[in-house]
Write a protein that binds this DNA or RNA. Structure first.
Lengths: 223, 223
DNA sequence: TTTTATTGTTAAACGTGTTTAGTGTAAACG
DNA sequence: CGTTTACACTAAACACGTTTAACAATAAAA
């Protein structure tokens, strides 16, 4: 590596270290780019050269910690547990993690989850990776016979994530909501998705509607 | 009403009209407070006096249109249709509505959905109202016997909303995703939630786990 | 009517994310 | 080794949301 390249990576690290410190200490909205630049001993413009904007800096500064947390949670999944408990194991780890600095992760997720496709390469890749992972979990259960074979595992994984994400939003928005209450909420929600809420009386109807919009509904798209 | 009060309401309307026009035309991020102030014929400071910040202005400028759209969708729910199709009817109306200006509503929902509790009074109230409405729909189905009596209708309504919201996020983030594909996705997702994805072999197990974290899981909270 | 208080409005300024137009130095080249 | 090129870095400026301090006009009080 060049001398130029090495010093470049050094200042990059200086900025990242300063950013992590100040983001966590003062919160991402209270801490300015100038603060970070000063703490890192570089010019504000330099921060923008290395990380194209504040949100990108926030993402890069935090995604490794998040990654580490998910990995550890996945590594400690109780293998013999039910699908429900395995999902909740991950959720518990993540909610507790975010609970350590709700304001920080509220801003990160806000600026990240609604950014147009293509920004947030790091977090997007993580999400995609773990959706795959959950999808595989479900596929395995299909083979084991505990999940119905006609289930679209990809959509099931996305759905479970949506339920997780919905409760996470509440957690990050409402200071009074505890992690425990959030998890109880999510637990019920996941159980509903795994077992359904409708009665089985209709018999064959279950699964018939799945994967196809009703005729009545198709009308909307014929124009 | 005072003369002071009337002129105040007049300028408020001037600002709102200007804001609606420019937000829709140039997009909420491209159009500046100064633009809106100029269009309305007032000073930028005046805009902030009437609407405490840009996001609040965006919310007030748009919530009535949204409200109108939901109301109309709810009013045209096919009464005899299944729970699934009734939900999808609403979703279809809302997705199509947002599809008319994705950028606009992407920014609105981003700045609104993740704001701390208390901001966004208008949209929060709407959401709460319709969650109640859906909750009631489910309660009625419980009485009819198509939904299991042990179902927590409030959580079911929230869950269905989370599924709706998850797909909406994708729609607003990804320009290439069509409303039709989004609705097909949501349709499958909702079907999963209504009917479950697990097999029924476990029999009594269904519902046993519901509303209670497993013993294994309780351990986390004993410290 | 005169005086005082209230308040809708604003010009000017501020804070902060980002851009621009260099500047100097390390690498590449002859 | 001297010259040219590439580029990491920066000072200064810009853009825009928001705040401040003051003004002018109306309402309330005397």
């Amino acid at each position: 590596m060049n001398r130029r390249e090495t010093t470049k990576q050094e200042t990059r690290q200086l900025i990242l270290t300063a950013a992590r410190k100040l983001f966590e200490k003062k919160g991402p909205e209270q801490c300015t780019m100038r603060d970070i630049a000063t703490e890192a001993g570089v010019s504000p413009a330099s921060v923008v050269v290395h990380f194209s904007n504040k949100t990108a800096l926030l993402e890069v500064a935090l995604y490794e910690d998040i990654q580490r947390n998910i990995s550890q949670a996945v590594a400690t999944i109780p293998q013999e547990a039910s699908l429900h408990n395995r999902f909740l194991h991950i959720a518990q780890a993540m909610y507790s993690f975010y609970d350590g600095n709700r304001e920080l992760y509220r801003v990160l997720i806000r600026d990240t989850a609604f950014a147009p496709e293509g920004s947030n390469p790091h977090l997007s890749r993580q999400l995609e990776h773990y959706l795959h992972f959950f999808s595989n979990l479900i596929e395995v259960e299909k083979e084991r016979g505990t999940v119905r074979p006609d289930t679209d595992a990809g959509i099931a994984a996305s759905s479970l994530f949506s339920l997780y994400f919905g409760v996470l939003m509440e957690l990050l928005r409402k200071p009074d909501l505890t992690v425990k209450v959030a998890l109880e909420w999510l637990s019920t929600s996941i159980n509903q998705h795994l077992n359904g809420i409708q009665t089985y009386e209709q018999g064959g109807k279950v699964g018939a509607e799945e994967n196809a919009l009703s005729d009545w509904f198709e009308e909307f798209f014929i124009y």
